[in-house]
Design a binder for these strands. Structure first.
Length: 445
DNA sequence: GATCCACAGGAAATTAAGGGTC
DNA sequence: GACCCTTAATTTCCTGTGGATC
């Protein structure tokens, strides 16, 4: 077994000297927050049509005698196309206008359904936003009790006013098809409310999201639909140029670097978030190196670093079962010189590793299938469904989709896995029929 | 054309954990 | 403390699938 050595060597890194050097480096950033995706600028280039559409829908709230009803809105578009930014931008402007006119501003409840995935949690989040002094527990309350609380809070706190509930990444809601789901409830909530009104803004990356919904929810939720097209390279360049002016000191970012950054992001789905993060990372890179000029070379270096960091962080953050599964895929990949392995072979190796891991029970093959799919979606492994006929059946062939050495390093850094890093799966040592948990798996080599 | 293989993957059930109410 | 309620993870059961083989 390995030993972890702590404090064996004196550190050669002089932190005081480092801070002094850092302070003497040229100033790069005026305001680095401007390059964060959460930052909402005063101007959103190339989104005039979308801003206008949303503003036209909401404008009726400004007229005192025209009622409090506006249409629900559904926003579609790929990641980084400005859906959330435009929504926040319009809400900010509407709030300012309301204040200037002496009208009560709407209440905004922003919910990211990727973090708040269940109906219960969505309703609890609405309650907590409206009444933070008396928070709702994360579980435990019956649905009808919770729903009653939502109704009374909306009527009490927003008497004669309106509330916009923004459901970002709405497709992540798990129980969107059941009759008790939050979309069904929210789409009919105004029938129960006596004093206030609720309006919904759904945001999704998936154009076909609506196809799975109850028709009554669709008709209510999609009263107005707005599509956000992906940005092209010149549009991304405009966005970056405007942000650079506020974020970074003059004459630091080369024109070519900016264009390259825009071109890379345009190629990857026209994602403005990606372009901004690439630019920020490159600027941080030259800041650490004490340079005062950002070129194309730094953009490429930053891109490589982002991808590397993302993979390592993802692997290190995996739950233990999935980590052992990925280790099984790594071992099969390694001892087969990069060739693919079947689900059965991977499961076989996984079971062997789990049996040698203290305090861990093996998951069923059904569950492992889902975990492999998750790794595939994350881009860590790649898999394809193949059929080998009567001899081999239909199976998924799996291999690593990232650099083998990078995966190895993630496991080498963790002493719990160092014993497994050179383990040869039994079906590779003895290429015959393997039996695991009463099931037969045939080696395909 | 029927059969068989080795799963894939959907749906429902089960389990554990966290919390509320009486 | 018993019971009720929720979520999330996992298991169990089942049907479906593509292509080689019979």
């Amino acid at each position: 077994m390995c030993e972890i050595k702590l404090g064996c060597e004196h550190s050669k890194f002089n932190i005081d000297q480092f801070f002094n050097d850092f302070l003497n480096n040229p100033d790069i950033f005026k305001n680095r927050d401007v390059l964060e995706s959460a930052y909402i600028p005063d101007e959103l280039p190339h989104r005039d049509d979308q801003i206008k559409s949303i503003a036209q829908i909401m404008a009726s709230l400004l007229k005192k005698n025209s009622g409090k009803t506006v249409s629900n809105i559904f926003l579609y578009g790929k990641t980084g196309t400005g859906k959330t930014a435009v929504t926040r931008y319009v809400s900010k402007k509407l709030d300012i206008k309301c204040r200037n006119m002496g009208i009560v501003s709407p209440e905004w409840v922003y919910i990211n359904c990727n973090h708040v995935k269940s109906s219960y949690r969505v309703m609890a989040t609405i309650c907590n936003k409206l009444n933070p002094d008396n928070p709702v527990p994360p579980t435990g309350l019956p649905r009808d009790v919770l729903l009653e609380r939502v109704y009374s809070l909306l009527d009490e706190k927003l008497a004669d006013s309106v509330c916009f509930i923004i459901l970002d990444e709405i497709d992540a809601l798990k129980d969107k098809n059941s009759k008790n789901n939050v979309l069904y409830i929210l789409s009919r909530i105004n029938e129960t409310l006596k004093k206030s009104k609720v309006h919904l803004i759904g945001i999704s990356n998936i154009l076909t999201f609506k196809d799975d919904l109850d028709p009554r929810v669709i008709s209510s939720l999609s009263e107005e639909e707005i599509v956000f097209p992906a940005y092209n390279a010149p549009e991304l360049y405009d966005i970056l140029k405007k942000r650079v002016k506020i974020a970074i000191h003059d004459n630091i970012v080369a024109e070519g670097a900016l264009r390259l950054c825009a071109a890379i992001a345009a190629k990857e789905n026209g994602d403005a978030r990606r372009a901004l993060s690439l630019l920020r990372k490159s600027a941080e890179l030259i800041e650490r190196r004490g340079l005062n000029h950002l070129t194309e070379e730094h953009i490429y270096l930053a891109m490589e670093q982002i991808d590397r960091d993302k993979t390592s962080e993802f692997i290190k953050a995996l739950p233990i079962q999935q980590k052992i599964l990925l280790l099984s895929i790594y071992l099969n990949h390694k001892f087969r010189n990069g060739a693919e392995s079947s689900t059965g072979e991977i499961y076989n190796t996984y079971c062997e590793l789990v049996k040698n891991t203290y305090g861990l029970n093996e998951l069923t093959s059904r569950r492992v299938t889902d975990l492999v799919k998750e790794l595939d979606l994350a881009g860590i492994v790649s898999s394809k469904l193949l059929s080998f006929g009567r001899k081999g059946g239909r199976t998924r062939m799996i291999c690593l989709a990232v650099d083998e050495n990078r995966v190895k390093k993630c496991y080498s850094d963790d002493p719990r896995y160092t014993d497994f890093i050179n383990y040869i799966p039994s079906h590779i040592r003895r290429p015959n029929i393997n039996i695991v948990s009463g099931q037969k798996y045939r080696s395909l080599i």
